[in-house]
Design a protein around this nucleic acid. Structure first.
Lengths: 216, 216, 216, 216
DNA sequence: TATGAATGAGGTTTCATTCAT
DNA sequence: TATGAATGAAACCTCATTCAT
């Protein structure tokens, strides 16, 4: 005996809190990804989530907070996925390689989630800090990895010194992801390898004393 | 007898069209840079420009179009500045080096202009295409440069093959600029050198046959 | 095996109706007094009362009705307190004096209740009538008292004639209470005496034929 | 040649700022008086004013500010009207008498304005302070008048001492106004005289040493 | 009985855009 | 040409109220 008055949508009612919350976050991520933060409207999110606006507000707060919740979830998911792949005992190169591979794989399977983490917020928004923070987290991890890779070299580097390299790597990643989405014929491994070849090789050269200088 | 012609305000009237347009664009770039595209209001732009809103619309059209005009001007300025520095006869490495140096110098002197070109538009905006396009232009130039650098090597590459490297380089640049703004103790040359050391060295390795492979 | 009957919260269940109702009214009076009728939310009242909103509605109806119930209870309490003090056999002056004293005492001990009776409702609300009505009741009693005081004078007055005096007295009371709350150094007796001296003396003068006239 | 497209309303367009502002205030006072602060909607005010909501906001700000503007205007009007009548050289009694007369006259001619000044705001509103302030102003004036009246008596009083009397008088006035609106057969002079007889006589008794004491 | 979950309706506010002078 | 004045449309958010368990 199906519920009457159903007008086609299987909008389930009276769900437990956790389920609804996930439902809402899914909808919000989808809408934010498609429309961008500003252009997205709470009306549309509520509709996609299959609930009314008051519920939307009751569960996850105002638009800003909802957006922050999206970022938080997606950032955690991404970082968790990578953490699982990067085992502690491995060499830095191996760790970086695995991390990159998983990153590209994850991103291609979860494009909406990635869109929320990337290029969403203009200056002046209250939610920028959350985006900045997760990016900082990612950068720090990589900077630490790079520093560790120099430990046994002639000139060990501190994370403060490797930070700009990490920053550049993160930027290159972001940029390449966008390019990849338009050239889907490449594989995740291929993308990761590209980055290893470019950034890691250049970094190794530097560590080993081979560096580029102008006019020579 | 109402006052005409001059009521004390320095707001000049009856300027030639080109001057007015520049005035408006200056104001618009400033406001867009500070507030971001969405948060910027036409009211504020008109006020900063020292004209009334109807004039604003008459000169440069609706908000989208105005924003596109800003991007176009700033992108052209940036690319022009770089073009001047990159002389045709030089080696690819030298060209890239000069280009990067000028890029960082230009950006630090014109932060508002750069802010308009970077991280301003979320998906779903009509003006995204303009941003994508200028980024594409920059990428193409670099890709061509990289291709040219391989011409005399064992395995010459086509621009299509060097494109992902160019994309990564652009991303790394963008990312580093942001980092630089928070670490202003570094010089433009230092920033450019960092990138050369990382990307160019890695690229050279690759061209010369040294590449990174997993499992080793 | 779900926990029943007691989950740790002191929120008691299954109380007899009268107790519950008092609990709710206490909460409602407190919230209405603090926030005012409009700004008060049923959510907060339910929370303060320690019950769920559906129960709130089941026991005392919609917001308007709940508010009316509050007024009714507080008005009755106040009037009861005064009635006890005013014994029938006394002289009008003595009755008035006792009534005022008890009024000020009561009000200072029950500020929340007083706040509900005073300055809560703007015109246009459905619950105004209840407020008007209790005020009318108070006025009538005083008017009768004043009339009775004139019975043995040269010109006995009907309650219709003493009514404006009663109205003024009520207004003066309300106004003085507010002033008193900001000057708590005075005693209830002092406040009552002030009113007796002002209103009763003036009234006595009038009854005894001494009246103020302009142009003199 | 009447403007075309007129759909019946004589809504005049493109008025100078001052005129529009008065128009809006008139409408706002009317609506606030009828509905009360909370129940009044900006929609209705805009409609009554014959303008669109954005204009409403552009001219006088948010609802709070608009309400404050109403209070300020009405309070000033009332106080101005009274100030004109109360000439400086007169005796305190004469001044009070004239002030009261004008007060009642004014209020009866401007009931909406009075409603805005009286019983509009519940605790907790941001605009209370404005109401409190104007009431305070009125009280101070009266307190000073009463103090002045005692100057030549045996026991001159300071305004701090006469303040509670002033407070009571203000409350009596407010209360009587409401009663008067329901008994319009009385005249303004009659109302003022009632107050003089009650409050002034009582006060005079007190000043001259005749006071009421319990148990006697 | 008691409640967590849900919503319809309505409020305030802002902004891009355009008349009418 | 140049603008003060004006608005339609839509955004976010809250609240009193009621199902369905």
């Amino acid at each position: 005996m199906v519920d009457r008055q159903d007008n086609g949508r299987p909008r389930s009612r009276r769900l437990p809190r956790a389920v609804r919350e996930r439902q809402i976050l899914d909808a919000a991520v989808e809408v934010f990804a498609t429309r961008g933060f500003h252009t997205a409207s709470m009306d549309e999110i509520a509709e996609v989530a299959g609930i009314s606006k008051p519920m939307l507000y009751a569960y996850l707060g105002a638009k800003d907070e909802l957006f922050v919740a999206c970022i938080r979830r997606e950032a955690n998911r991404l970082i968790d996925a990578i953490s699982v792949a990067v085992e502690a005992g491995l060499s830095p190169a191996e760790q970086l390689w695995r991390g990159l591979r998983v990153f590209f794989e994850y991103v291609s399977r979860n494009q909406a989630g990635w869109a929320v983490l990337h290029r969403q917020v203009n200056q002046g928004e209250p939610s920028v800090s959350e985006l900045v923070e997760w990016r900082q987290r990612a950068t720090s991890v990589i900077a630490a990895l790079l520093a560790q890779a120099t430990e046994e070299s002639a000139q060990p580097m501190q994370p403060e010194q490797t930070e700009p390299f990490a920053v550049a790597l993160v930027g290159a990643c972001e940029s390449l992801v966008e390019w990849w989405f338009q050239h889907p014929e490449h594989t995740a491994d291929g993308m990761a390898m590209r980055l290893m070849n470019m950034v890691w090789m250049g970094f190794s050269d530097l560590v080993e004393g081979r560096s580029w200088t102008p006019d020579q």
